[in-house]
Simulated assay, not measured.
Amino acid sequence: MNYPIVIETGSETQAFGVIVPDLPGCFSAGDTFDEAVSGAAEAITLWIEDAIENGQNVPRPSSLDELRAGSGWRGPEWVWGFAAINPALFDDSAEQINITLPRRILARLDRRAKEENKTRSGMIARLALTA
């Protein structure tokens, strides 16, 4: 999945800035063009994860042509591009897995799950998301 991004060209003394028009408040920067684009992909991923955790809708990527036609980002200082995002970020389907853990770890996990009124799977998911 590719989100359109707008890159403000940098120089030897100014960083490259990146704006993600589809995701309000999502931006990034880097000392080089490549760093800026990589940073944008990371910023988009974090933005989406935060929105999902907070029950907000995540806008799908807009058409680059539509964004370019209606934007104020025109001129030689702005370059349009895309940041590739793993579509699995949007996949909430459950998948059964098989893991092996020492019994003492399972006992601690089960105890914490019970204290928080969660299942073992729910506890593992919560811990993974907060790590």
Rank of each mutant, 00 (worst) to 15 (best):
V20K: 04
L64K: 08
G70D: 03
S28V: 03
P21S: 11
D34Q: 10
D92V: 07
F33H: 04
V18F: 00
E12H: 08
G55K: 11
F33Q: 02
Q56N: 14
L46P: 03
L89I: 03
W80A: 02
T13E: 11
N98C: 15
T119E: 07
A41M: 11
L67K: 04
R74Q: 07
S93D: 02
A83V: 00
P61G: 06
L23Y: 11
G17P: 01
E116K: 13
A128D: 05
K118H: 15
A128P: 01
I19P: 03
S63M: 15
A94V: 04
D91L: 11
F82S: 00
S38D: 10
L127W: 15
W80F: 04
A128V: 10
I99G: 07
D92K: 11
A84D: 06
I85Y: 05
D31G: 06
I105E: 15
R112S: 10
A128E: 04
P76E: 04
A84S: 08
T13K: 13
V20Q: 03
K118M: 08
T45W: 15
G55I: 08
L129Q: 11
N54S: 08
N117M: 08
P87H: 06
T119W: 09
R112C: 07
V18I: 01
Q96R: 14
I85V: 13
I124H: 04
R103A: 05
G72T: 08
G122N: 06
L67C: 09
P61F: 05
E66G: 12
V58F: 06
F27L: 12
R108P: 08
Q56A: 12
R103H: 09
D92R: 09
I97R: 12
L129C: 12
W80T: 01
I124V: 15
M123K: 05
L67S: 05
W73F: 13
D92W: 05
L109H: 09
A84R: 04
A40N: 01
A113D: 05
W47F: 02
G75R: 05
